[in-house]
Design a protein around this nucleic acid. Structure first.
Lengths: 239, 239
DNA sequence: ATCTGAGTTTGATCTGGATCAAATCCGGAC
DNA sequence: GTCCGGATTTGATCCAGATCAAACTCAGAT
């Protein structure tokens, strides 16, 4: 896992990405057909294995990506090894930091994933030329900012139990957007990763999950597959 | 203070804002002279007392602001009263959430402050018409996102001592941007606010400040005025 | 079928920071 | 000047979550 963390994305055996406005997410919806065609000509579709990093903290990245499938985690590591996951990203999110080459965080696939990779130079040019695209990236940035600040509340002020419930709620609502009453989903994160997202230890995460199970708030089919019979109750616990 | 928190900004005795490209910060640098003139015609300069809120969590806000002087805190409050400050903003930051009227946080003056207030409708129109402006707001949003994520690391993974040192370092670098070796500055926050920013209690903040003082890392001239003889040491402690 | 090892759970104990409780400080009203 | 009340510091104690230490689980290798 530590090796995986330092493994930076390298172009492998890419597949040219066909025109796919619907699936390029945030980027393609905002482009003209001509731009889309050019973008596609210079873009690659790539499969990414769980655990491999596509952006490394502290290094320069010369591309952006759109997530087509899978979940990515954005991590910040301290020199002594302490780590904090600062966001999860799901399809069809855009991954990358517009306007700044050097990354202050790493982006790593939490599950097997598929991405579309755009050259930074080309997309930067298109952003400058296309207010629509700028707007759509601006919008994603603002949404991520809202989410980050919401999570700051979780990190700073919620108890371990509330933190775990918040995480399950977050995953449930992203995995099963229809989430009316009940939900069943696969956790894209290991216990260690959950701990790094919640600012807790593995053991505390595990104990809180067990507590929620014993109270009937969740069923743990196996450590990665969770069923939530009553989403309202989970939401209530996450405060 | 609790009353102040719920006190929402109301236009008082505003002063028409003269053309002041340099001082309007993020917004005005990106506008043409004609736009600037129109914006100024519909904008107000306002003094805001420490403690009064210009945006209330959960309510709609029909204006944006630029901070001309002073410090604002962005707060999120839980139903049971727990609170987290999720950002500090300094002149010449832009305050407001483009594209979404209802606010998920409150914005409150931490010190006496002065702002320029723009009507939301007008500025939204200008954003749509002015890629430069969109770009400059996009840029601020991305910088705030970086800052928020950096702070998530502080909240989730740093010790109380590291948290307090991080806060002092943050304030010092904003108050005294030249910050080469030593720095002296006024804290814009009370101990209670510092606690709410760091996810700690008042007592812990106080104890850690005392510890830093006894170690000679800081001098506390009075509870609000701090001298840092050696910024490097402070930075080292904040990890 | 058994072994292996990473991931997870559970148990025992410890501790950093919270909580409860007084002092002390200090700026403003008088 | 004295008094007052909120902010801050300091002290004593507590406890949620960390740490240390085993078990347990289970998918993949042999």
């Amino acid at each position: 896992m530590d090796i995986a963390r330092s493994e930076v994305f390298e172009a492998g055996t890419p597949i040219a990405c066909r025109s796919c406005r619907a699936r390029h997410g945030v980027v393609c919806g905002a482009l003209s057909n001509a731009q889309l065609k050019e973008l596609n000509r210079h873009s690659l579709r790539r499969k990414v294995e769980a655990g491999s990093a596509i952006i490394a903290q502290g290094s320069e990245s010369s591309f952006y990506s759109n997530i087509m499938r899978g979940v990515f985690k954005l991590c910040k590591m301290m020199p002594d090894g302490r780590q904090q996951i600062v966001a999860l990203q799901f399809a069809p999110d855009f991954v990358g930091r517009p306007f700044v080459r050097e990354s202050t965080l790493s982006a790593e696939a939490a599950t097997d994933a598929e991405i579309c990779v755009f050259p930074r130079n080309l997309l930067d040019r298109m952003i400058a030329q296309t207010p629509e695209l700028q707007r759509s990236l601006h919008d994603q940035a603002l949404n991520e900012l809202d989410a980050a600040r919401e999570w700051m509340l979780t990190l700073g002020r919620r108890t371990a139990e509330e933190k775990v419930a918040s995480l399950l709620h977050l995953i449930a609502t992203h995995a099963e957007p229809q989430t009316a009453i009940s939900a069943a989903f696969d956790l894209p994160l290991s216990r260690a990763e959950i701990a790094d997202f919640l600012g807790l230890t593995i053991e505390t995460v595990s104990r809180q999950m067990t507590r929620l199970r014993k109270r009937g708030v969740i069923l743990i089919e196996n450590s990665r597959h969770i069923v939530v019979p009553d989403m309202d109750e989970l939401e209530k616990i996450s405060a």
